[in-house]
Write a protein that binds this DNA or RNA. Structure first.
Lengths: 337, 337
DNA sequence: ATAGACCATGTAATCGATTACAGTAAACGA
DNA sequence: TCGTTTACTGTAATCGATTACATGGTCTAT
């Protein structure tokens, strides 16, 4: 592979001139430029990014940490980040952490080693104070999850407000015995959604029953949603609606209901969260709160970019709009029962 | 950030000694080693990968090209590649091509620029002779899709055999009017599956009807699967079974059947392909051919690694095992109709 | 006692770009 | 006309690691 020096020799100029031409720095006469371009073509020269990045001390890579890439919610965020990064001339290095802070930490070491210029963390647990050690020294943006007590810029939706709307909707339909499938994780979204669940019930004079709140596994697995739903639907009195904090869990709940011989929504209403493809794949289509996943990723990337390149102060919090989407899995409770 | 020279000064040795110690090259006395480690700790030194990679002329990055990251089939492959790469000390740079050869080509330029040491291509179209231009000069492995006429190592399953088994299964159940939802793409898998569909019918003395083969959109979208299935199920005589080349399409077909008031599998049998999570998310659970997605990705990464590091000749073709999984969406046709 | 092997370490070149600085020539302004 | 920009180009230092080669000291075998 030809080097810049060879191109320079071929064109009869110095490397400085070639470099200036390629980087649009300084000036180069049209005549010389033409000769250089000819030489580049002749030798089919390609700049060596290893050398360039080393010299400029930048990697043009952004690190992305996600629990996994198979959950469609994360996949869409990754998609948004990836597209935005590509548009800005950055490459996205995706690391999966499996929700393990140790692996998260390992991956962040990449910043110290100059393998990446900045990082976007998707779904960090609460209580991530140790993150500040990195955030103070490197550009970092959190996407979707964050800790309100930790001062790192983040992009998310208003989980409390969204859950409240969902609950208000159920109550307005006439539901009183509303259960919830949450998750055994330390995400802020989970906490806010549970808070909103309790608060909204209370505000309507309905005493929240703790045994109506069933935590699914930390990764929102379909299987565990089904399991928890079966437990909930076996209780007496049986809840007439289940508020799930993810669509996968909602799908699990619907499957559970069907296996118990219950109809959705006639016998039990199920609502989800996120609005991933699953919601409209089989009937009943799922009522859910739509999150702008792709946009969350895109915004995160743009913020990080601003922080990395212009060293700009970026807003601590960016909240994008959610939307309650009513479909087939919700209906008024059957009051005759 | 401290440099190796500073560490060397602090420890009272030369940079060569520090480097040797860190790379386990040559020998360093225990005494010296201790002093160096102390210096590293004191200065909290981290090697600069930009410098190291530049010097060694390797990026320790592998390029991954996929049409998108949201299709669960690709997501699982990516997962396998990512884990394997991390285990080998490589980082995975994921680029989405949207099935656009131009973007695929652009991404491959990264190899020339030394941004990556090798590449794994997921789902390249047939007729990708131009790929040889890169494959001849850089380590490249294709995963899942490939072109038998293009000599690039690839990892896949036996699509023909798998489809044949699926068809034999349907015929053994008693189905004669079997339709197929394929796709409008140029993948080898699509071609082999269609071929196996035709051949197997013919071998059983059933004349394939061309209008029973409906191509869905190139990305196997749920929506287009539903659309095609509605057309097929509206035909006279109506097919009693539909062989779909992806689970998403199968899900679309099941939804279509339900919307038409048909029961699955009593009125129509639907079988899928891939075995992604969707298959067991709602009843009827889908009968399908399982592909070892994660393993496909992992193997691809290992092959690429062998090729990159030992320059070894690697096998041109690696075929992993598939498995027909019979679930609820298939049953003998109702012969009373 | 001495050659040869081996160990521990240092010196300095090297990878391929970017860029500060300097120099020359032409253009310009008064 | 002379000083001063301005346009264009070249020289060489530089980024931070790796590594070929050289050096001096120890140990071993004859």
């Amino acid at each position: 592979m030809a080097t810049m020096a060879e191109v320079a020799r071929e064109a009869g100029v110095s490397v400085a001139t070639v470099s200036r031409l390629l980087n649009q720095q300084g000036t180069v006469s049209p005549n010389t430029a033409e000769r250089v371009y000819a030489a580049i073509k002749k030798l089919s020269y390609e700049p060596n990014l290893l050398a360039r990045n080393f010299r400029k001390s930048e990697s043009r890579v952004i690190l992305i940490l996600a629990p996994n890439v198979t959950n469609p919610y994360y996949a869409h965020i990754l998609s948004g980040i990836g597209d935005a990064a590509a548009g800005m001339g950055y490459a996205a290095l995706i690391f999966t952490t499996g929700d393990d802070p140790a692996r998260e930490r390992d991956a962040l070491e990449m910043l110290k080693k100059h393998r990446a210029d900045g990082a976007i963390l998707i779904a960090s647990d609460m209580g991530c104070h140790w993150l500040l050690e990195y955030a103070d020294r490197y550009p970092i943006v959190q996407c979707s999850e964050y800790d309100p007590e930790v001062d790192i810029p983040h992009v998310s939706i208003d989980n409390y407000q969204a859950s409240q709307e969902s609950m208000e909707f159920l109550i307005a339909l006439g539901h009183r015995r509303i259960a919830m499938i949450s998750a055994e994780n330390a995400y802020i979204s989970t906490r806010l959604r549970v808070n909103a669940y309790r608060d909204t019930l209370a505000r309507h004079g309905i005493a929240p029953r703790e045994d109506y709140i069933a935590p699914a596994s930390h990764d929102y697995s379909f299987k565990s949603g089904k399991l928890r739903a079966k437990e909930l639907l076996g209780m007496n009195p049986r809840p007439t609606a289940i508020f799930c904090i993810s669509d996968t869990l909602a799908l699990g709940a619907i499957t559970a209901a069907k296996e118990l011989g219950l109809r959705v929504p006639e016998d039990v209403t199920v609502v989800g969260f996120d609005d991933v493809e699953h919601t409209t794949m089989l009937h009943p289509y799922i009522t859910t709160v739509a999150q702008p996943c792709y946009e969350l990723g895109k915004q995160s990337a743009h913020l990080l970019y601003a922080r990395m390149t212009q060293g700009k102060e970026i807003p601590r919090q960016t909240i994008l709009k959610h939307q309650l989407i009513v479909r087939e899995s919700s209906a008024p409770p059957d009051l005759l029962e």
